[in-house]
């Protein structure tokens, strides 16, 4: 598979702030790539470098085989972008803004534009300043998705959308993916990425701390197990890979590393399992593992309870 986006050792500083600190990101052509991280981790900075709106201080970056800074204009014809915070021109209507952005990119698919306006339930004849945040977001989404761009850079695109519109958005992204286009989807809405992404990169403090498919990551992380047993469970602490064990009477709850799940369950059976629930780690937990260590010091129980 060829890479639609490849960065290596990307560094970007704003004064004393090091927004990107050696970022290595690879997005394969044709995949929906989830780009996860908390606020201020460097997601938007990365996307803006991919667009050539910002220039990296160090490192290399290739987008669709080109240099986003030097070949910005040529690449932009093949890229569609939805910013996280959409600002519209107060005296232009939403429909005008969509057409403007589309035609500046080099034309947009008229039928698809009208269809998307319909599906997103957008009124295109209202002036920019009268739209709510969610509706401004829709304008940018329609403008981006009505194009035939090969690569979609979506920076928290559904912030402000209601749940119904979120469902429409997910449908549309699946269609985009089926058409073989590449999507970089940044978000801190975990469920959304989980549903759409083929692969995920987690960014923290300007670095990618983990990258892979959801399955791969789950393997690396812990499963939470809750059980009700006939007799109180003992000896959990001595088992390898078991964390945060809490035993109260016959109820037990613990987290276990993927590799040691088998051993832990075998241990439980000795105490007579009456009820057992286990759930795989959610992305939230994946992230908490990576951002949780500063939290853990002051707020360890909160992190563990999840």
């Amino acid at each position: 598979m060829t890479a639609a986006i490849a960065t290596s050792g990307l560094v970007k500083t704003f004064g004393a702030t090091r927004a990107l600190d050696g970022l290595d990101l690879t997005v394969n052509a044709g995949e929906v790539h989830g780009f996860l991280g908390p606020n201020g981790a460097g997601k938007s900075t990365t996307i803006r470098i991919l667009l050539g709106i910002l220039r990296a201080d160090a490192g290399s970056v290739t987008v669709l085989g080109g240099d986003p800074w030097a070949d910005a204009v040529a690449l932009h014809r093949r890229i569609a972008y939805v910013p996280g915070d959409v600002e519209l021109w107060p005296n232009l209507t939403g429909g005008e803004a969509i057409d403007l952005l589309g035609s500046l990119r080099g034309g947009l698919n008229r039928r698809r534009r009208d269809e998307l306006i319909e599906r997103f339930d957008l009124d295109p004849s209202k002036k920019g300043r009268t739209y709510s945040k969610g509706n401004r977001q829709k304008v940018a989404i329609v403008a981006a998705l009505a194009s035939d761009a090969e690569l979609l850079l979506l920076d928290e695109p559904t912030a402000g959308l209601d749940p119904l519109m979120e469902v429409v958005f997910q449908e549309v992204i699946r269609e985009v993916k089926a058409a073989g286009r590449t999507v970089l989807l940044s978000s801190h809405i975990l469920a959304q990425v989980e549903k759409l992404a083929d692969r995920i990169s987690i960014i923290r403090q300007g670095r990618i701390v983990q990258s892979g498919t959801l399955a791969e990551m789950r393997h690396l992380t812990r499963t939470t197990v809750e059980a009700d047993t006939a007799t109180p469970v003992t000896g959990l602490d001595r088992l390898p890979g078991v964390h945060d064990a809490e035993v109260s009477g016959t109820r037990v709850r613990f987290a276990v590393d993927g590799a040691h799940l088998d051993g832990a369950i075998k241990h439980l059976t000795a105490f007579g399992i009456r009820a057992l629930t286990s759930h795989p780690p959610t992305l939230e937990e994946l992230m908490l593992r990576h951002y949780g260590d500063d939290l853990a010091a002051g707020n360890g129980t909160a992190a563990a309870r999840r």
Partner: peptide
């Protein structure tokens, strides 16, 4: 109250200069 406007861009607005002129 803000008035409604055209639901689609005119041919002029869709050019860089037309866009600047509009602003």
């Amino acid at each position: 109250a803000a008035r409604r406007g055209r639901p689609a861009a005119s041919r002029l607005l869709a050019t860089p200069l037309g866009f600047a002129l509009r602003l």
